[in-house]
């Protein structure tokens, strides 16, 4: 039987106290569309259970269940009888995964890099610029790069998310 790791549990609770209210009814998993499509491989109730037990290695290192599968559809948050803010808890767990240098899906890095480099997740390509002209749409003025760079520096974003994989 696994022992509760109170230190890690408390670390999560510090981020979101509502974790404490979970009574493991399983409503979240029963309405979760990802749990349904993955035939239970993904299981939000289980992630909450592991959080209540503070099972750091399962949550952060092994990532079982794979927390990155959550679509953030917020159905569980809407339906949980105990008002546990599951997606908030999952977000802080994912932040911990990323910021302790553990692996996370490439697509998230690609998007973050685009934001760091261009301020937007998708830049305007020449064919799209032509299409905008055809449709008589105004130019899109991109965000001030220097301003964004300075703001991202203030939040320490690049370092935190280990974007260059040098940790």
């Amino acid at each position: 039987m696994q022992m509760v790791n109170f230190d890690f549990k408390n670390e999560i609770i510090k981020e979101d106290f509502s974790l404490n209210y979970c009574y493991q009814c399983g409503t979240c998993s029963s309405i979760c569309p990802v749990a349904f499509a993955s035939e239970g491989e993904y299981n939000p109730r289980k992630i909450i259970e592991e959080s209540l037990m503070g099972l750091k290695s399962l949550l952060i290192k092994e990532q079982k269940p794979n927390i990155w599968l959550c679509s953030t559809c917020q159905m569980c948050v809407e339906e949980c009888p105990q008002e546990v803010f599951l997606t908030g808890i999952f977000e802080s767990l994912k932040n911990k995964i990323v910021q302790t240098g553990e692996k996370y899906p490439e697509a998230f890095k690609v998007q973050a890099k685009a934001i760091i480099d261009n301020g937007v997740a998708i830049s305007l390509s020449p064919p799209i610029i032509r299409r905008r002209k055809e449709l008589k749409l105004p130019n899109v003025e991109s965000a001030d790069r220097i301003e964004l760079k300075n703001l991202l520096k203030a939040t320490n974003f690049e370092k935190k998310i280990n974007i260059n994989g040098d940790r």
Partner: peptide, 9 residues
């Protein structure tokens, strides 16, 4: 996306 990596940013 980005918030899943760093809420503060």
């Amino acid at each position: 996306g980005a918030g899943q990596l760093d809420h503060l940013t």
